[in-house]
Write a protein that binds this DNA or RNA. Structure first.
Lengths: 351, 351
DNA sequence: TAAATTTTCGGAAACGTTTCCGAAAAAAAG
DNA sequence: CTTTTTTTCGGAAACGTTTCCGAAAATTTA
């Protein structure tokens, strides 16, 4: 019986509207509206009276009606390659914190690193009239035509992390060059002589920049670019494993690996351990974009920490600025990180 | 100049509405609406004509206006303890896949394991008029008053994973009892004699059930409940580490640990390794609710895999059923998993 | 005290749909 | 060929807001 009661209650339950409040107080609908958006001319006492009784009556402004009037959805779309990835889930938290506090809702979608999914997501979101878009490109995305079209229409889009240099939009990036340089320099200073960089595919800016940072360090310390070379690998653990195994099989193992990211570094470590090669005694390893994993693996992994939360926050703030002030000239914000040195790269013989 | 052009274009750009389409074809607005919601009486040819020219004109129905008319937000709120956690992010993917395909949008919030955050999230979401709620309780949540009130109003809410037995709502749970039983049984069959269960706090159903599964296995194999006991630990890695260190210090180490979850198991492993105790030769370990980590740690961790995606999918489907058919009697769906046996629990001497 | 100004408010249109109602057109039945 | 039934469509109200416009009330100025 009580269960039946709850059904009827639900069916009968009506949200109290602005009209109900107006009627109750014998004021106009517009006055109630004014009371709730305190930018208009309304006497202080009536405003307070309205707000008070509205609260009593349990009135909440209907966000949908407001959106319809204001021609704004107050929705922001976020597209990332995957949110199981700690880097992205942490970034999303930063994004959400900023946007929700400004009354926006955040719709999150993931491309699973596929271009078609990414495109579909962006289309779904723009069909849903999001007021702006935050995008981190999938690994597959070479074709940026659709983004160019949206940007040309003046649609606010901010890119972060996985960007494409040629897109005329604001971006938030990490200083990959600099920190890859530092990571490599750290290996050099530890006394590792022959260092290979396991790189991601070259069309990704982040992969390219990390590669360049590596090369710059090699150059600065007068080491041979032939001896200390770059191997295009990928971004996945299995790819790091496979390449390392090949190097072992070809007896072409370096003294240390500077890796494009942690998964590749972990893959390399897996191959090394499988072949009973000691880390860091025989081969040192550094990763990039650390996750909580870095502390858990054995040996713990030296890596570059990115300011994930700040990246999200900054991205969201750039977007809000663009939504509110219109599109000025594109702006690229570069953030700094931190090299966390752990066991995988510290030569015990040196200490 | 081109940049200035894009500004004006944006300012000028107007979405084409149903009226524009109607005017263009000299038909009524209602006909166009009928064409797009094919439940109404409309001649086949006119419908096709309308759809065709609507597409030509780039018309997309305005979801906000539709929501206002239909008195539905087509938004679903999801509140989880944290989405950095792989378990939850994978579950969310299952939820999203189902809901998005039915035209719903998913608003995700996290409580960070705090009751006040959880409450605030639920309030924010209901102010935003979500049509339903999917909730996994925070560790702190003892007070369920607010949920009771919402449920009494007939508000559709489905709980998953972190549930509270006393709430009269549909739930999706994992058969923790059964799989904890299997995990413990596996340790027993490997020949481990003295087994401790590192348990979570007792007010969480999942912790309680995993503990009971452990006890049931101990009982079934006629092992002493005093010898093979339960230690209330927590859910975090540090807690597992701390307890294990205490056991080591008190010379009270068992032959194996059955743990409430993977973080606690990893913490125990960390403490064991720090004390040069060999896993699994001296002490075996099994975890629960595996993540990708299980394969990466050394030794790899035996754990119970939960069907995360299916959990999300099932939860979303239950919610949709409730939204569409009204609240019938609460329904509890229990899903099965899989015990993945890895190095941390396999006695080499046995093989 | 009358006129001018400012403050406060109500009426009504608008946002873009869906849906009810009734009428016109077409088809079927007589 | 008329009458009845069915199919197809247009008009208009409604959803719950915001906002423009103008008028009434209150205040200031002369």
């Amino acid at each position: 019986m009580s269960y039946h009661a709850s059904i009827t209650q639900y069916a009968i339950m009506k949200h109290v509207t602005i009209k109900d409040v107006a009627k109750r107080l014998n004021v106009s609908v517009s006055s109630v509206s004014r009371a709730f958006n305190d930018k208009y001319d309304i006497k202080k006492e009536t405003k307070e009276l309205i707000l008070r009784t509205a609260k009593e009556m349990g009135y909440h402004p209907n966000p949908i009606a407001r959106k319809l009037m204001q021609q704004k959805s107050y929705n922001i779309g976020v597209v990332v390659p995957e949110f199981i990835n700690e880097f992205f889930s942490e970034t999303i938290i930063g994004i959400q914190d900023v946007l929700i506090s400004k009354g926006y809702q955040v719709l999150i979608m993931q491309s699973n690193e596929h271009y078609e999914n990414e495109l579909m997501n962006v289309k779904t979101l723009s069909d849903n009239m999001v007021d702006g878009l935050i995008v981190s490109l999938s690994r597959e995305t070479h074709n940026t035509e659709f983004y160019l079209k949206l940007l040309a229409e003046g649609y606010p889009i901010i890119f972060f992390n996985r960007i494409n240099d040629s897109l005329p939009a604001s971006k938030v990036i990490f200083n990959d060059f600099k920190w890859s340089f530092f990571a490599t320099e750290h290996l050099i200073k530890q006394g590792f002589k022959k260092i290979y960089h396991l790189s991601g595919q070259n069309h990704l800016s982040l992969a390219k920049n990390r590669m360049k940072g590596f090369q710059k360090a090699i150059e600065k310390y007068d080491m041979s670019p032939e001896e200390n070379r770059v191997i295009e690998t990928g971004l996945l653990m299995d790819e790091g494993d496979k390449i390392t195994q090949e190097l072992i099989d070809n007896q072409d193992l370096p003294e240390a690996f500077s890796c494009v990211n942690d998964p590749v570094a972990l893959g390399a470590m897996r191959a090394l351990k499988r072949n009973k090669i000691k880390i860091p005694e025989e081969v040192g390893v550094v990763g990039f974009t650390e996750t909580r994993l870095a502390d858990l693996v054995d040996p713990s992994l030296t890596s570059v920490k990115q300011p994930t939360y700040e990246i999200g926050k900054t991205t969201a703030e750039l977007l809000l600025k663009q939504i509110n002030n219109g599109f000025k000239t594109p702006e690229t914000v570069s953030l700094d990180g931190q090299l966390n040195i752990r066991a995988s790269s510290v030569r015990k013989t040196i200490a």
